[in-house]
């Protein structure tokens, strides 16, 4: 968790070049890079918990305003998107250090089963998002009694 430095890109790649061009274009347009690109890793980082009833996805996202987060489930895909820590735009503010993630993010996770959409719930507390994804009834494993012939 919480690496202090961003990792250096390992090998040269054409994608780095393209990204840096895209980046300078974005900068010229005043847009921020997606969080995952700044950090060279996924954002937000997730833990996945399972139980017979379904899954619980736990995202590490301190500083995020819950009003800025969207959680959606489409079919068997969970998507968490939003924005985190927009860089202050005020002219008289000097940024001495910026280690925290900032900007827009979106992360999708393919679920191992279909979920009951109406039963999905999300709670955000102290910078940690927990999404409960109950397995839909028809996909729950069923026990079949074996009768003696």
């Amino acid at each position: 968790m919480l690496e202090l430095t961003t990792w250096p890109r390992s090998a040269w790649s054409i994608f780095d070049e393209l990204e840096s061009i895209q980046e300078s274009m974005n900068r010229a347009l005043g847009a921020e890079r997606p969080v995952a690109a700044q950090r060279g890793e996924r954002y937000p980082l997730l833990n996945v918990w399972t139980s017979p009833e379904g899954l619980m996805v736990e995202a590490d996202m301190p500083g995020v305003d819950p009003a800025d987060v969207d959680v959606s489930v489409m079919g068997d895909q969970l998507t968490i998107s939003g924005k985190v820590n927009p860089t202050p735009k005020e002219e008289n503010v000097v940024l001495h250090r910026q280690e925290r993630p900032h900007g827009e993010f979106s992360r999708a996770l393919k679920l191992p089963f279909r979920v009951d959409n109406n039963q999905v719930s999300a709670a955000f507390r102290n910078g940690i998002l927990r999404v409960k994804l109950p397995r839909s009834e028809e996909e729950k494993p069923r026990k079949i009694a074996v009768k003696a012939a």
Binding site: V94, E99, G127, I128
Partner: peptide, 25 residues
Amino acid sequence: VYMPEVDIMEDGENLTLLADLPGAE
């Protein structure tokens, strides 16, 4: 024990330090 990530900003009157402490009340 983790080292929290921080942002440090300065304006005319204040220094502001933001530190991420996920899970902390």
